[in-house]
Amino acid sequence: MPLSSRPDAQVWLAIMAAVLTTALTAVSFWLSFEALHDLATDHRLKGERAWAWPATIDTFIAIGELLILRASLMRKVDWYAIALTTAGSIGSIVLNISSVGVSDDPLDYVVAAVPPVAALLAFGVLMRQVHDFLLSRQQSLTAPPVPSVLPVTPQEDVEQEVPQEAQKAAEVPEDEHDVTEEPEPVKEPEKTQEPPTQRERIDLVIRALYDTLGNRRPATRHMTDALEKAGLPSSEGTARESRKRVEAAEPHLKTLPSALAA
């Protein structure tokens, strides 16, 4: 398969998956709404109120999933969003099953439970696809610029300059008197570069981990192990402070995916 056609195929597969997931989510929520509407109708709610009542249950799932997506993009864990999604999902499943009433056929309860479960799973898959898309866009916008290539002097030009200098030296008349060259002024010895401080050595070790882990953000375990091998202070606080300094100097490193600690 040609390399140029592979990205196109991946894009079309992603679009088809997104369309089918959206359709599955819509159908699942619709079936769940139907069951909850019938339950509300049986308990003194009529007309528009019977249709609005299911939204007080299933909307918790959508709100919770969106908050979980927001937290994952911020590289955080939102326990409130997880609790909200769990409460809405459990409530929807229980109420859908209870709408069946008393039945001798277990499949009646299975049929009632499938729509809310499918709605939860389909919506979770849809949020995962949105998460991957937004993360890829964020990484492409924050990627470091590609360094420009310095011009290289052709070898032929260097070879042509050497004969010209030799020719000028040959044109100097031989009868010229030697000119006494003035002694060159004594230059002060250049100061040797001071060795890096302990803080700079720690930052160099932490910065090297991003390349060692394949453009991934090192976890605390990675940093403490690397500092311990280098014979440097290896506490978790020292490692995290060094990572903050490195990412402040190179902000694009903060957007890299996190590496899993072994």
Rank of each mutant, 00 (worst) to 15 (best):
M1D: 03
M1R: 04
P2R: 09
P2G: 11
P7I: 05
P7K: 05
W12L: 15
A14N: 11
A14G: 12
T22K: 08
A26G: 09
W30L: 15
S32W: 02
F33L: 13
E34L: 09
D38M: 06
R44E: 10
R44M: 14
G47H: 09
A50V: 06
W53S: 08
P54F: 03
A55Q: 08
T56L: 15
I57P: 02
T59Y: 14
T59I: 10
I63T: 10
G64R: 01
L66C: 14
L69N: 03
R70P: 01
A71F: 05
L73S: 10
M74Y: 11
M74S: 14
T85H: 03
T85M: 13
I90L: 12
G91E: 01
S92F: 06
I93H: 03
S98G: 06
V100M: 13
S103W: 05
D105A: 05
D105F: 02
Y109D: 05
Y109N: 05
V111R: 11
V111P: 02
A112G: 07
V114N: 00
A118K: 01
A119V: 01
G124A: 11
M127G: 08
V130D: 01
H131E: 14
D132T: 07
L134C: 12
S136F: 08
R137C: 00
R137Q: 12
R137G: 03
Q138I: 03
S140Q: 07
L141H: 04
T142E: 01
A143D: 03
S148N: 06
V149M: 15
V149W: 08
V152S: 04
P154Q: 02
E156A: 10
D157C: 01
D157S: 02
E159W: 12
E161G: 13
E161T: 14
V162G: 13
V162L: 14
A166F: 06
Q167F: 13
K168Q: 10
A170Y: 08
E171C: 08
D175T: 15
D175W: 07
H177I: 08
D178F: 08
V179L: 15
E184N: 06
E188H: 09
T192C: 06
T197D: 11
R199T: 15
R201D: 01
I202Y: 08
A208Y: 02
A208M: 00
L209M: 11
L209H: 01
T212D: 09
T212S: 02
L213N: 02
N215I: 08
N215M: 15
A219P: 01
T224P: 00
D225S: 15
D225W: 09
L232N: 02
S234F: 03
G237N: 15
S242I: 09
K244L: 15
L253Q: 00
L260S: 14
A261F: 04
A261N: 11
A262D: 11
